[in-house]
Design a protein around this nucleic acid. Structure first.
Lengths: 178, 178
DNA sequence: CAGATCATGTAAATTGTTACATGATTCT
DNA sequence: AGAATCATGTAACAATTTACATGATCTG
């Protein structure tokens, strides 16, 4: 379901797009929240077209197909947004690693965390750069699009960086004592 | 792969356990990072036993089977932990909703965010309570187990609460003007 | 014209969810 | 004895990944 919702959302945010466009949008915009390959996106778009959630226009240069969201599609997206869903699924390999940190040696954990902190710091810089340039290059119809998610992404990345740094320092401290 | 890693991690952290135990541990400990039902856990444990990553002891009261991690299983876990994996997968319906916030009316978005903030606040209280009582009831072999992940979970939950509150306020402000 | 990029698809395998199915043991 | 909990499993379906496959168009 979430893939479908993400696609409807991107079609709302960016306007009529091809599967190829959407695949790239997935990587560049919503990647922090959800991922999908073209091999999943193309069939899903066709299923959605068959169900009337989007329309297809087959006219482009290299067999390019342009999909556009329908009223029915917008209704589906809206229903999902307003629906009470107490069970929100969340999977994160980074958090899994955090849990499993005590399974390796303290000095290894410290090295790993320091490395992670650097990765997060680099990502943070990239996201902040995107935010700074937001007004120019955005493919969005409304300027608010992506804004809240970007803000959330920046905060989360900063949190991960700080957590990694502080946890590394803490492990180092306690390993030095014990 | 991640399911397998999570199971190996839990077997390391909690010692020999049954599939039933592990299913409950999934819910209570690692849930913030990964989820799995017993219908996925039981077959995976049997596959891991066949591959020599865990041993099985069929002796318990109600057909209970006890699984224990082997050297080979520990090596697999260790390899995963130390392995450089630049692509860490992350999926979150909450973040997806954040992205799609501008697809609904501002007043709806505000209501949704306020609701979410409350949910996160409640979860935060629960997690902080768990942290406060940690020393007593923990099933872990080492006291550090779950500690780092719990800390991360608390920070992330607090972040979501704050983000929801502040974003609600911001939307309210700009909707009032515009 | 060669290499990059655009553009779409399918097949097979893996992973994850929901639903069905069963029986033992403990608690009240 | 009946309800709750312990305990394990399978089957069907849905979602996701990896790999295979193809061809058009643009760029240098």
């Amino acid at each position: 379901m979430s893939l479908r919702i993400a696609l409807l959302g991107l079609l709302t945010a960016a306007g009529p797009s091809s599967g190829y466009d959407l695949t790239k949008l997935f990587e560049s915009s919503i990647n922090n929240a959800w991922q999908a390959r073209h091999s999943q996106i193309y069939p899903e778009l066709n299923k959605m077209a068959a169900e009337g959630l989007v329309t297809v226009e087959e006219a482009g240069p290299r067999g390019r197909k342009t999909y556009e969201i329908t009223e029915e599609g917008s209704a589906e997206l809206r229903a999902w947004m307003l629906d009470e869903q107490p069970a929100r699924m969340h999977r994160s390999e980074a958090a899994l690693r955090a849990f499993l940190l005590p399974t390796i040696e303290p000095h290894e954990a410290v090295a790993l965390l320091r490395e992670q902190a650097e990765v997060h710091a680099a990502k943070l810089a990239k996201l902040e750069d995107i935010r700074a340039r937001r007004s120019e290059n955005s493919a969005w119809r409304k300027p608010t699009f992506g804004r809240y998610a970007l803000d959330l992404g920046i905060r989360q990345t900063r949190l991960l960086r700080d957590w990694a740094e502080e946890t590394a320092a803490e492990i180092e401290r306690s390993a030095g004592q014990g």
